[in-house]
């Protein structure tokens, strides 16, 4: 399956909904979207990965790149993911310590606002 991207605003946070496979072929599209959102002043992002079917290190690199960009503006980039097969690659690379990973969009938003 190809990659589908959508985004909307919720509670002053830009929610990026990703569906499909994030790999070396499709990751540049996600990268472009994240860059575009940051360039338009969206510095608090939540990437909803509940419908992601595949994620490799190229996709991880795009997410890390997005995190670097929002942090340059004192922003945040959190993830929503409960799929074990997707979480596994975050664990292997140690990136669970870098990203906030939540079970729902609302939980991610609430956690950020409580800090």
């Amino acid at each position: 399956m190809d990659l589908k991207l959508d985004h909307h605003t919720q509670d002053d946070t830009e929610i990026v909904v990703v569906e499909g496979e994030i790999d070396v072929y499709t990751a540049p599209r996600l990268r472009e979207l994240l860059i575009d959102l940051v360039n338009k002043g969206n510095f608090h992002l939540v990437v909803n990965m509940e419908k992601v079917e595949f994620l490799d290190s190229t996709g991880l690199g795009v997410l890390v790149g997005g995190l670097k960009r929002v942090r340059a503006h004192d922003g945040t980039l959190d993830l929503v993911c409960t799929q074990e097969r997707i979480l596994k690659i975050f664990r292997i690379t140690g990136l669970t310590k870098v990203f906030g990973i939540y079970e729902s969009v609302q939980e991610a938003i609430d956690n950020r606002k409580s800090k």
């Binding site: 990268r31 290190s57 190229t58 690199g61 795009v62 790149g65």
Partner: peptide, 8 residues
Amino acid sequence: PPDGVSGL
């Protein structure tokens, strides 16, 4: 670089 495809 910030414009790099990967931050990894």
